[in-house]
Design a protein around this nucleic acid. Structure first.
Lengths: 141, 141
DNA sequence: GGAGTTTTTGCCATTTTATTGCATTTTTAC
DNA sequence: GTAAAAATGCAATAAAATGGCAAAAACTCC
């Protein structure tokens, strides 16, 4: 995805194309893992160009999320993590219980459990909890 | 599960049996849904008997969690939610995107995705996002 | 391309959620 | 019952997120 694409996504969603939204979307798309709002800010700080305010990043993420361009993940850590909604394969997430790292795993969509009457499922999320390689090696450190 | 059981669980885990730990464990076990620490406090406030401090509830939950009696769920909402670790069937969780309600769903364990080398999986969590019956009905309200 | 309208931003303050330090109390072993 | 260790309560603090409002930016129309 390049910038014109990002701009069009935002425009198509009915919003204004602003530096903050572009930067946030670009940052999340470039990241290998889902990021927290503060991590997005950190990345943008280390990148040439305009750095939006922290509150603006929260609002940009909220907007992107409300318009389906970005997705909030269920996380165990304190801060919410977001990833871009792309036409990628369905995938799961791994969360390390020691360092909190969250990363994407290739995985097919699991079977959908039966819901109570009247409930509607919109998305299925699979989270694997465990230890990453580094934490496993250093657990006794 | 009754109180003597709770006491023994705590003792077996190598901790002291205190009013706060018992109350928190009893509360989580009695709840139909996973609760946040503040919800636990609220429940305990409405219950006859000693009401522990909020911080004590956090610490009791941390201890119970560290000793495998209680489990922290991956959530989309802001506050962490906990449920007792019992010998129940494996189950999934439903989260309503509108009201934030989290409830348990019967579901078999989904297949485990392949992990990167060195990674260890300890638990698999399945989260269904969507709308609960009430929110679906009242979405235009 | 410039004026006018609407949306978005930045800053400040505030709320919500969670954690830390330390003196006091409670639990447990003996 | 007493002593040692662990847990609690309170106050302060940190971390994560939100709300209000004036200033700035993006878009529309001509």
């Amino acid at each position: 995805m390049n910038d014109p694409d990002f701009s069009r996504c935002i425009r198509d969603a009915g919003g204004r194309v602003t530096a903050a939204r572009l930067a946030v979307l670009r940052c999340l798309a470039a990241a290998e893992e889902p990021l927290t709002p503060d991590e997005v800010l950190e990345h943008l700080t280390q990148t040439p160009g305009h750095v939006p305010d922290r509150v603006t990043i929260y609002r940009a993420i909220d907007w992107l999320s409300a318009h389906g361009l970005v997705r909030r993940l269920a996380t165990v850590g304190r801060a919410a993590r977001y990833e871009p909604v792309e036409d990628r394969e369905a995938h799961a997430h791994f969360q390390c219980r020691r360092c909190g790292q969250t990363r994407c795993l290739p995985a097919p969509s699991p079977p959908l459990p039966a819901l109570p009457p009247g409930y509607v499922a919109e998305r299925v999320e699979l989270v694997i909890h465990g230890l990453c390689a580094a934490c496993r090696a250093g657990e006794n450190a």
